[in-house]
Amino acid sequence: MQREVIIAGFGGQGVLLIGQLIAYSGMLEGKAVTWLPSYGPEIRGGTCHVIVIVSDRRIGSPYVTQPAAIIVMNRPSLDKFEDRLNSGGILLINSSLTDRLPERKDIRVIAIPATDLAHKLGNSRVANLVMLGGYLGATEVVGLPTMLQALQEVFPEDKHHLLPLNKKALEVGMSYLTEP
C-alpha cells in the first residue's frame, strides 16, 4: 500500500516540517518513504509545498500528480491544489486561513480551524501540528506513538522544551475529527 500526500502553505507555516515528520515516522515503522519539496525562489513568500510518500514497497516516482490526500494551510494553496486531488481523496483545510470551501463534490473535505485552535493552545505557530494531527486521525498513515518518537528525534535538543506543546497540538487536531 502506498500513501501520498501533498502539504502546501506559506513559507514559514512549517509545511516542510510536518512533511518531514510524516516521512520520518514512516521510516521508523520500516516503510519506504520519500520527501520531495518545492524549492528555489518559490519557497520565499508565496506557496511552498512538499510531496510525501509512505509505502510498503520500493517507491518509484517520488513525484505525484494526483495524490490521495492534500493538506492546505491557506487559501492560495487551496486554489492551486484543489484540482490535483484524486477522486475520492481527502482534502484537509486550515479553515482559519481560507475563506472558501472546495467546490468539488467527489472528495472528502475536512476543515479544521487550525490556526485558531493553535492560538488557544498559546502559540499559533503549531497550527501545522494541529493539521498533522487531523491527517493522522483521518488516515492512520502512521501511529501516534511513532509520530511522538519522530518529534523527539527530528526536533533539535534546544527545541525539546516545545515538545509538550507540539504533542498537545497533535492531539487537538486528532480529536477535532471526532468532537469538533
Binding site: 516521512a23 520531495l36 524549492y39 517520488p62
Partner: peptide, 10 residues
C-alpha cells in the same frame, strides 16, 4: 537531477 538534489530518503 534537481529533484535528487532536494529529495530526502532514508
Amino acid at each position: 537531477d534537481g529533484i535528487l538534489g532536494q529529495i530526502m530518503e532514508p
